[in-house]
Simulated assay, not measured.
Amino acid sequence: MGLLSRTTIATAVFAVISSQALSEALLELKPGMAYMFRGPGHMMTAALDEQHRGAMMKYAQKLPKNTVFFMKDGELYSASGMPENSLDELHFE
């Protein structure tokens, strides 16, 4: 998966996390749906058919466990590969 698709997936996940209206949707990311973050406060969803899913899979890659998404200065970042004990102090819900 290319950096663009990984970034798109990451931003979509972060948008779901960061939006109060959609905060509960984090646990309900649905198969067959695409989530796109276009900037703070601008998230879009779309149903994926097999053709579009196949096209996206050419650029897709699985996210590693313990991947964290966060904003800094209006930009979305992700961090992965950290040991689990380094995340203990963050108090994730």
Rank of each mutant, 00 (worst) to 15 (best):
F37N: 13
S80K: 06
A79T: 15
M43S: 07
F70P: 08
M1I: 14
D49K: 09
V68I: 12
S19M: 11
K72P: 06
R38C: 09
G2H: 08
E50H: 10
Y35A: 02
H91L: 02
F14C: 10
M82R: 04
S23R: 05
Q61D: 15
G81A: 14
I9Q: 05
H42L: 11
F37H: 13
R6L: 09
H91N: 08
H42W: 06
Q51F: 11
S78Y: 09
S80H: 01
Y77E: 13
L90R: 04
T8P: 01
R53V: 00
L90M: 10
L26Q: 04
K65C: 03
L76A: 05
E93G: 06
P31I: 03
A79H: 14
F14A: 14
A12N: 11
G41L: 03
D88C: 13
T8Q: 09
P83L: 01
M82Y: 01
P83S: 04
M56D: 03
R53L: 05
Y77R: 13
G32Q: 14
G74P: 01
F37Q: 10
Q20T: 13
M71N: 00
L63V: 10
R38K: 13
M36K: 01
L22G: 04
V68N: 04
G54I: 02
A46I: 11
K58A: 12
K65E: 08
M36Y: 00
M57F: 02
F92L: 15
H91G: 02
D73L: 01
